[in-house]
Nucleic acid binder design. Sequence first.
RNA 1: GGAGGCGUCGCCUAGUCUGGUCUAUGGCGCCCGCCUGCUAAGCGGGUUUGGGGCUACAACCCCAUCGAGGGUUCAAAUCCCUCCGCCUCCGCCA
Length: 425
Amino acid sequence: MIDPKLLRDEPDRVRAAQAKRGLSDDVVDRALSADSARRAAIVEFERFRGEQKQLGKLIPKATGDEKVALLEQTKKLAASVKEAEAAQAAAEEEWSTALRSIPNVAADETPAGGEDDFVILETVGTPRDFAAEGFEPRDHIELGKLLGAIDIERGAKVSGSRFYFLTGVGAQLELALINLAMDQAREAGFTQMIAPSLVKPRAMEGTGFLDQAADDVYRVEGQDLYLVGTSEVAMAAYHSDEILDGATLPRRYAAFSPCFRKEAGSHGKDTKGIIRVHWFDKVEMFVYTTLEDAAAEHERLLAWEKEFLNKLELAYQVIDVAAGDLGPSAMRKFDCEAWIPTQGKYRELTSASNCTDFQTRRLDTRGRFEDGTKPIATLNGTLCAMTRTIVAVLETHQQADGSVRVPEALRPYLQGREVLEPLGG
RNA sequence: GGAGGCGUCGCCUAGUCUGGUCUAUGGCGCCCGCCUGCUAAGCGGGUUUGGGGCUACAACCCCAUCGAGGGUUCAAAUCCCUCCGCCUCCGCCA
């Protein structure tokens, strides 16, 4: 939720922000008029209510005819109060709906436009030249089979398309990645967390996932619970309805959880392999900090993501995601896209978002500072999304014989193994 | 799943039976001031959160807020209903 004050004081800035995302600014006027209607309704209600309270005080002292008259008067007033209260509630509702449908105001630095209007900030490493090395790279599906690491057929048999089993060395690889990520996070001062992947509607709404992305969210039948698409959801709601001591900020959490996505609307995209699946596990960085520090923290999250990708010796580029592709919560987003050899392109592996006070306003999380209670910011960034990372590692570090070289940083987490060998026979 | 108990402004707590000076008591903690070689103690004051009015976004005034939502009533922390959470016991279970 954006700051209502910003809407009131600088509606043109909000209009411009809508345009930058390619959205209509009708909602701005709707929200503005709802706001003034709401305030009028509040004044009305408070006038009646105040009068009612004043008269109510006289009743216990009154006697006889005086009391009868008072009771008659207050009875009428009670009806007005009730009516005004209902009108106020309706006005609040309309205002809140309008306000909530306005996404976060993108940062000045965020490129305008949609999905294709991103700006490449940096390219790290060089994609391997398999032609020069004299062999055709195998895709992760084939490598997964050779190594006995990924069982997609049985994933489909048991759970349907876009599911998989990680088997043997594949399972070990995920556990190694989790531990590498968690160790890095712990060393950087993060509190390690294992977060629930089923959450109440409040958490889902609060993080903005019931807006545009609603179609992508699994809802549990008959249970008023949702499966999270990222532990960001649980972590943003973790401190809901709390006022955090400003001195404890930034609070940095590294949360592990499975993630579930319907992938509605992506039929036909990435239908093979484990690039796009309905479930995967992820270690996510989640930070609560001050609004003043948020932009700097965003850069730090990106730095930690790069550090992790560097450990895995991957080639990648960092992009500044365009406004139209930010999602409702973020005001700026950096994606790290790793080179996938058999696709001949960079694919998103991690994503770091600065959500400023958009989520904390919805979830009632604030900070107590010397100069008062103020809104605070949340940020999130992927440290390691297992499936796509496994794809990148296998394909990038494969060798002509179908074996895969283990990046050095990962070896301590794989019993010192330097190479993953194809299964015999 | 069954039975019972509990939920008060940071923490503890009074108030709920018997609705109305509850404008929610007291203590602890915290903040400001006084006092004071320093510290402690003592004394005085302040200390939920959200919203609105008016404005300099101050001060001030007002409304809401006693787990949440309804209801009864002129009036609800207090009575009634529903829900949520926590605790105890039983059952079940990894």
